[in-house]
Computed example of a mutant assay.
Amino acid sequence: MRLLSISSGKVMPLFGSHHPNYKSVASAINKESISNLNNPVPVEITRLGVAGDEQADPSVHGGLEKAIYVYPVEHYAFWNELLTRETKKLVNLPLGAFGENFTIEGLLETGVYIGDRIQIGDLEFTVVKLREPCFKFNAKMGYKGAAKAMLQSGFSGWYLRVNQMGTLTVGLDIKVIPGQRVTSIADQNKTLFNRGNQKNLWD
């Protein structure tokens, strides 16, 4: 298990016909990898996440409880295939494409639980909850069924709280310190999907 990429983004207009009331909304989902295995630049991590990263709507992204969004690189193949099929264009998503701050490998939603602590180098984080997709995700992916596909697949990623601030470099190993292990991110996904929570998906 290791950290492959750290990404950051600024708030800017997000365009798309993926909501009945808006042609453009403010979003910072467009993030770029600022440190990766090809360019392993040290990055400062604060209580609010990656230094310089922004969020358009603090009620649903960011803050102390959603400071870092993590996404497994293993899911990229699923999305590249799905989006290539649905958009009829060859898609090869770059790291950071899901708006994640940390792209990781070797740890999936089935293996991480709410309350688990995650150590990367000298820094420590706590797993808080899954990521719930909305219409902005559809706009970012250029596919109106993207949010629904995230719910159905369970490939949501998850949010972290920052316990120990400092500087991170990609390539570091990830260590999971188990908590009570009552509810996994996969369990949360299943509950959300079974509840029929389709609000703001507009599919």
Rank of each mutant, 00 (worst) to 15 (best):
P40K: 08
P40F: 10
V182C: 06
Y76A: 14
L160R: 07
P178T: 02
G9A: 06
E54K: 06
N30A: 13
G115E: 05
G171Q: 09
S33L: 11
L90K: 15
V11S: 05
D116I: 04
V112G: 05
S5H: 07
R195H: 07
M141W: 00
L3T: 08
N30G: 07
P20D: 12
A28E: 00
L37N: 08
D203W: 15
N138Y: 01
G111V: 02
I114Q: 04
S27T: 10
K31G: 02
G9W: 06
G196E: 09
L151E: 04
K10S: 13
D57V: 01
G179C: 05
K10Q: 10
A186L: 08
L95M: 15
S27Y: 02
D203Y: 15
T126Y: 04
T167C: 08
L3C: 12
Q55C: 01
G121V: 01
L201T: 12
P133F: 04
S8T: 04
F125Q: 07
T191H: 03
K199N: 11
F125C: 08
N163T: 01
I174P: 02
K31M: 05
V170L: 09
F137Y: 14
T126F: 00
L151W: 02
G121T: 01
V91D: 04
T169Y: 03
M150I: 08
N38C: 00
S5E: 11
Y69M: 13
K148Y: 12
E109C: 11
I104C: 10
E105L: 07
H61I: 07
F78A: 05
